[in-house]
């Protein structure tokens, strides 16, 4: 255990934990767009910058990304000092120039008092902030269907050769974790379309409810050794089946007892 001071309060933390994990546990709201607990911290959005200092630093301070900074004994952290807020305003100003139409970025920027960017807005901008959370989650899931392509101005998130990705199974995790909801998908009839690839959704045998795609179910069956017939019914019909089975068991035991 290490002991550190966050906003004047002494806090205990485990060794090796990142600052952002500790502040979130303590209920301190630090904005972070590229962070997700399922993947390793990446430090792409630079919004979780905090001010750190130590007694022996003689008043010198440093500014670090909280998601990537491991806690140390005797660390003194300021999460919302005027200098930190100024840093976040600059980052949000730049993000606003990149994604002027994103409601999530606009709202966060407004919270920090930035309503209009001081920079030139990118013409025909999409809402992607290039944090790479979608690509990292896809890699974590083991599919590696999408990645960042290109460098500098040309950098985009795309499948290989910008064609329908052969490794994608249509699990929608990329779209679910995207902090600015930029990844579009469509569920129509029994078809799901994402990344220009079409998938068949498994319909429940009894009620027709669709949960996941056939490709995803096949991947789970083969990689994780889950029987394929588990995916034939939806969760609601599984519950009904279980209640009927339990009823049968009870009536058998009643008959056996009488």
């Amino acid at each position: 255990m290490v002991s550190l001071t966050i906003n004047g309060r002494v806090v205990q933390a485990n060794k090796g934990e990142m600052l952002l994990t500790v502040t979130r546990r303590e209920g301190i709201d630090i904005p972070a767009l590229c962070h997700h607990d399922a993947v390793e911290p990446f430090g792409a959005c630079r919004l979780c910058m905090v001010e750190i200092t130590k007694k022996e630093w003689d008043g010198w301070t440093n500014y670090v990304a909280a998601c990537l900074y491991p806690v140390e004994d005797g660390l003194i952290v300021q999460t919302h000092s005027s200098k930190v807020n100024e840093l976040r305003r600059t980052v949000l100003d730049l993000l606003l120039a990149r994604c002027p139409n994103s409601p999530e970025i606009r709202q966060l920027a407004a919270e920090y008092g930035v309503t209009q960017t001081a920079y030139e807005e990118i013409p025909d901008a999409d809402n992607c902030i290039l944090c790479g959370l979608c690509t990292r989650v896809c890699e974590r899931l083991g599919f590696k269907a999408i990645s960042t392509v290109g460098r500098g101005h040309d950098k985009v998130v795309a499948p290989p050769l910008k064609e329908a990705p052969p490794d994608c199974v249509g699990c929608l995790s990329c779209a679910q974790v995207c902090p600015t909801n930029v990844i579009q998908y469509k569920d129509e009839g029994n078809k799901r379309t994402i990344w220009n690839k079409s998938f068949e959704l498994i319909a429940c045998k009894q009620c027709g409810k669709q949960i996941i795609t056939r490709d995803f179910a096949e991947a789970l069956s083969s990689q994780r050794n889950i029987p394929a017939d588990y995916f034939e019914l939806c969760d609601e019909c599984h519950r009904k089946e279980l209640s009927v089975k339990m009823g049968s068991i009870v009536s058998w035991s009643r008959e056996a007892a009488s």
Binding site: S173, Q176, I211, H238
Partner: peptide, 23 residues
């Protein structure tokens, strides 16, 4: 289930043979 780690892929909802993982 750790909701901070969950990426909402719905794999558990579909896989549970008793329908007890819920969305």
């Amino acid at each position: 289930l750790d909701n901070d780690k969950c990426v909402k892929c719905m794999a558990c909802v579909a896989a549970c043979p008793f329908g007890c993982s819920l969305h």
